[in-house]
């Protein structure tokens, strides 16, 4: 874009402001156009590599073949997607309930926090792939096992963020609540929970992605299950059968699911905080 055009029409805006406005507009367009260009170019390169090197589809399928697999195997893949989603959201729901519940319990009693927090950390830092086989030995229900694995991965960010949020309430307001003789419940309901909301929502966004990862990893460990199997199982199965296009198709669905979950949770977070929290407020320049 040349420098001359918009300034002449808007004499009341000075050079610097005009530049700033132009930069902002270009950045806005760029944030959409550039990623689309990159993905288009990548897919084209991918396609060319396959064609030029005459790669067989069981080594690397072209993008067209993956799309074909996505359409042809849609019925199978969609069923699997539903299973994965079910585990992901189930785990996320339990993680939210457990994480927030435990965080509230922690802030009500230092003793409980001191007793249990180290174990929450241990649970978090132990890789889920190494615990999962044990879980599947002791838990009969495959669904319950998967839920537990995904939950272990997802709940910690919610717990730690919410605990931090509950403790971050303005200390003057705490004093004020005390002056007015508030009950423990009132302090929690009117002061600590609202203070914790931005922290909780930050944790939720991380936990959403993690519960999907947890669900997929757990299914890898759980292995064959036949009926009612999720996308991870489809990837394994397709791998055994050298059906590489289907592997790619399933992978694509998992990635898209992650993106949608993150976008949805970001949107929820924005809507919940847009009236008052700094993170959700648009600033002028």
């Amino acid at each position: 874009m040349t420098i001359a055009e918009p300034i002449a029409e808007l004499p009341q805006i000075d050079e610097e402001e005009a530049q700033r406005a132009r930069r902002r507009r270009n950045e806005k367009i760029g944030s959409w156009v550039l990623p689309i260009l990159v993905i288009t170019f990548s897919i084209w390169i991918w396609d060319r590599i396959v064609v030029w090197n005459e790669l067989p589809h069981y080594i690397l399928p072209g993008p067209g073949r993956v799309l074909e697999a996505l359409i042809e195997d849609w019925a199978i893949l969609f069923d699997s997607l539903l299973v994965t989603l079910q585990i992901t959201f189930g785990a996320l729901a339990i993680a939210v309930a457990g994480g927030v519940g435990l965080a509230v319990l922690f802030t009500q009693s230092r003793w409980i926090e001191m007793s249990f927090f180290p174990y929450a950390v241990i649970l978090q830092v132990t890789p889920v792939v190494s615990i999962a086989p044990l879980i599947f030995i002791y838990v009969d229900s495959r669904l319950a096992g998967l839920l537990i694995c995904a939950w272990i991965v997802a709940f910690f960010p919610i717990l730690s963020n919410t605990t931090m949020g509950l403790n971050s309430a303005d200390h003057n307001l705490r004093d004020l609540f005390k002056v007015y003789g508030s009950s423990r419940w009132q302090r929690l309901r009117f002061l600590q929970l609202p203070s914790a909301l931005p922290y909780f929502l930050g944790g939720l966004r991380i936990a959403g992605g993690l519960s999907l990862i947890g669900a997929v990893v757990a299914e890898y460990v759980a292995g064959t299950g036949g009926i009612g199997s999720g996308l991870a199982f489809r990837i394994l199965e397709a791998g055994y059968r050298l059906n590489i296009p289907r592997m790619f198709a399933a992978l694509f669905l998992i990635a898209m699911t992650g993106v949608v979950i993150y976008a949805t949770l970001s949107f929820i977070s924005h809507m919940a905080l847009r009236k008052w929290h700094e993170s959700a407020i648009k600033r002028e320049a």
């Binding site: 303005d170 003057n172 004093d175 004020l176 002056v179 009236k275």
Partner: peptide
């Protein structure tokens, strides 16, 4: 409510 306090910061609930 017989006693109230005003602090150095306004200490309002932002939400």
């Amino acid at each position: 409510g017989a006693l109230s306090v005003v602090f150095q910061e306004p200490s309002l609930m932002p939400w």
